[in-house]
Design a protein around this nucleic acid. Structure first.
Lengths: 342, 342
DNA sequence: TGTTAGCACTCGTGCGTAGTGAGTGCTAAC
DNA sequence: GTTAGCACTCACTACGCACGAGTGCTAACA
């Protein structure tokens, strides 16, 4: 299973789990009690020294116990960790469903962030399903003031967004109705992401009698799809301050700033869409502000073409087992919710 | 102007402004340098003792300088303070407009929160214009799956929200169109808040041939209007940690929690709609978590019937002059933006 | 060869003491 | 009413010291 022999494995696990529990360096004495291996503290010290040479543990100072390094956590997560089981209570709290249909996909994401934060006691980040993965159903052009048109796009997840298009000249309501029907018919059932410039060009050509509206809509769609994705919901940032490693505001502040600048996460949530759940530990994070944090993330909404992502942000000293289980569970929940509305 | 004589006034102001600057208790020596009144430190000590008796200053311990009390800040804000002028830079940063029409009222609020936080370096809270203050323009019922209808309400600020109504039986598209037109005609130009149960009942009666849709819509509106108002955008919470009084995470944590539980503010932002800008200092705040904070708030969108509110949350040791000016300025901006779209 | 007991050593932590200085309140003189 | 003088208070800092948790090393043992 691991690149270590069984005993080192056990010791690494014990050090990490003890440290996760207590936030303190853990010493050989304490360990020999904890894991009933029938070996003396001295032996454990030898093993720990070896683990330190291998780069999995470190030493705050000579007379202190051991602390896991980022590499130690990495090995632990990859090879040692057994994913935790969620308690029925945890499941129940995460199951509270938000109907995508009645509340909309954005509210769904917002609510998921709240749930994730409150269940795990860490900070959470959730991106709403990206519009590109939604199914186009209708577009409705609604006259709005004299020279403006409100374009409402309806998808399988309800209304995605309305947009006022200014056309600079008055319009005929009948024409708009006709246009609405025509465009709706042409695009019905497509993924918004599959609505390419060529397709739009075809539609534009067909609607020759309403060039302005249709071109404004096309322009909007082209810009709209990539932009909306940037929106991300963050919750539970105050939980960061509960962690002893962030007891000093000066250390916590950059983390909170990074969380507020949610843009950082759009990268993150996009980059590894392949795997279903992934963990980024400490200095593995691109953002320097998060070098003391770990991120447990997952995508939801289809394995090959994920619709969105969710993540937990906590200290590297994180309860990975629970975190991973929770993230996976909620991701399944969101995927199911989206599929229900498909 | 004040209940104090001119010198006490000057001393109170000097103590407060010095303390706001430095976050340290201020002593008589330092003051006599600061304000060139030609009086000795001893005199200032006497005056400060008097101000302490009056409850405007306090004493961390015998050998420390004076610190303003909440009452001191209150007097300062009410009677002593001169509102600060915004620099051209500050104005420029707060003027960056978000078009209500193209981005929608919710984005407008979100963006305002971001601006307010970044300009003031405090935390900010902004509630979007409450739907009740928006003008109804149209409703469109759009067929959605077999037994469902998507109701889209269009207001002067664009699409407010779409809602899927499940009716349990199939519907006719023609009927829905007819219904859309009828309801739109009946409600056109009303404030959403003026759409009373009686009015809805009339409309329901008139649309006898489509009882289910219309009643579902009426039920939704009744619940929708009060609920959506709860939504509030918070930003700049990380700024709290910059303040020395919140250098310890244990003191900062409750504040951040209170900010995340934005519900607390819905009360606040509603309660004093009469005045245009108001300040709540320290223990004046209902939430105990905010007893170390002050809130500078304002409403926007019409004096008598405000549409929404915005606020700054910072330590009691806040730059009130700037804060008040900034909040007022941004409130004007939002009011103007809403009026443009009316 | 791996394990263990023994032991010296390191170093962070807690604590009591002393010194320092900013700032006060009081008193008496102006 | 104002001010100089002065004793007093008390947070803050530094220093020294003892304590103890935990280590690394060595030598003996299975």
């Amino acid at each position: 299973m691991s690149i270590l022999d069984a005993r080192k494995d056990a010791i690494l696990r014990a050090v990490i789990e003890d440290h996760i529990e207590t936030a303190e360096p853990v010493g050989s004495e304490a360990l020999s009690h904890r894991l009933r291996l029938g070996v003396s503290p001295a032996t454990i010290r030898n093993e720990m020294a070896a683990l330190e040479d291998l780069g999995f543990l470190s030493h705050p100072h000579t007379s202190a116990g051991r602390v896991p390094t980022d590499h130690g956590y990495r090995l632990y997560v990859d090879a040692v960790l057994r994913e935790a089981r969620l308690t029925p209570q945890e499941r129940a709290r995460a199951r509270r469903p938000v109907s995508v249909l009645t509340e909309g996909p954005v509210r769904m994401a917002e609510e998921a962030a709240r749930t994730l934060a409150s269940v795990t006691d860490y900070a959470s980040v959730v991106s709403p399903p990206r519009p590109g993965r939604l199914l186009f159903k209708h577009v409705h052009f609604i006259p709005f003031r004299s020279t403006q048109v409100l374009a409402v796009i309806v998808t399988n997840a309800g209304v995605t967004e309305g947009k006022v298009l200014d056309l600079g000249e008055p319009l005929d309501a009948e024409d708009l109705d006709r246009l609405s029907r025509m465009v709706s018919r042409r695009l019905d059932g497509r993924l918004l992401g599959d609505i390419t410039d060529e397709l739009l060009a075809e539609v534009v050509a067909e609607a020759a009698w309403q060039q302005r509206v249709i071109q404004a809509l096309a322009a909007w769609l082209r810009r709209y799809l990539p932009v909306v994705q940037r929106r991300v919901f963050v919750d539970g940032t105050a939980n960061i301050l509960k962690q002893p490693e962030f007891a000093d505001a000066r250390t916590a502040q950059p983390v909170l700033v990074a969380l507020e600048e949610a843009e950082i996460f759009t990268d993150l949530l996009r980059q590894e869409s392949a795997r279903q759940v992934w963990v980024t530990i400490g200095t593995e994070n691109r953002a320097i502000a998060l070098h003391g944090c770990s991120i447990v993330a997952a995508t939801y909404g289809g394995r090959d073409h994920p619709a969105g992502a969710l993540a937990i942000v906590g200290p590297t000293r994180m309860k990975y087992g629970k975190a991973i289980a929770m993230v996976r569970y909620l991701a399944h929940g969101l995927t199911a919710a989206l599929e229900d509305s498909a």
